[in-house]
Amino acid sequence: MPKTYAYYPGCSSMGTSAEYDRSTRAVCRACGIDLEDVHDWTCCGSTPAHVTDFGLSGALAARNLVQAKSAGRSEVLTPCPSCLKNMKAAQHHAHDPVWGPRIERLLGRKVPEDMRCASVLEILFRETGAEGVRALVKKPLTGLKVACYYGCLLTRPTALMEFDEPENPQSMETLLAATGATVLDFPLKVECCGASLAVVRRDMVQQLSGRLLDTACELGADVLSVACPLCQMNLDLRQKQAACRRQTKAAVPIMYVTQLLGLAFGLDEADLGLGGLIVDPRPVLAGIGARSEEAADAPAGGQDDAKAVNSGRAE
């Protein structure tokens, strides 16, 4: 029997990352992962709360865990790494001698300790995995060169997030390689995109995100795959600004990993919200079929470097 997860969309799902929310629901449905929205969910506190008061942040995030628990769920799934981090931090701070009591006072009860929280990527990797993806693929992404970008939060802080390798994660690559896409070895996969500095230091975001885009272009990426609403926004919405500043003409579609998986599963494009992206991915995606022939003989991409050991041979 499929396990039912409590689903916490987070505020960006209501606006800037609506397509992440839609594609997550669609892909999970296809994978047989049941999602049940957290009843009456509220804001996790986001950055403003946790930079001022761990107690407030903890209580806001933990309220949603309480809601999920009272609905009889044992694990919360959220597409947003920021929300995820706040939920995990709430559980962590519940043990803190200073913040613990404050969270409990604000929340009016104990933080549920046995509630697990995970990202969409983590659940798909754990529950469906490469084998599961391969079984579901209807329209292989053969020939599509994808650079996988995790951003700063999905794997770090290591002790809190407890997911994949902190410096060189492979879960997104593993899933996308199973769709037939050519996965590139993207060296900046856990670098910062500039995050919420977009509000106060736009120049810095242009520089940091610009770098990510430039590197992806140098590698010949058709698409940058992401799993975080804020990364997606910085890379997609501000791509033109960054290009302007750095005097480059990069135009790389920034797609959620769930959108790419959904495409490979042959899901309806409307369910995946492709229209919500700023840099239109359709021209690149249209080429998939055309390229698939020539790429058929090519090695399954990207993994060669990862596997090559330091043989250090000098010829």
Partner: peptide, 17 residues
């Protein structure tokens, strides 16, 4: 040491090498 390549790069070698 993944951030140093952990042996993935042929031109990142040890002092003894």
């Amino acid at each position: 040491y993944d951030y140093l390549g952990g042996g993935r790069f042929p031109d990142v070698i040890t002092g003894l090498q």
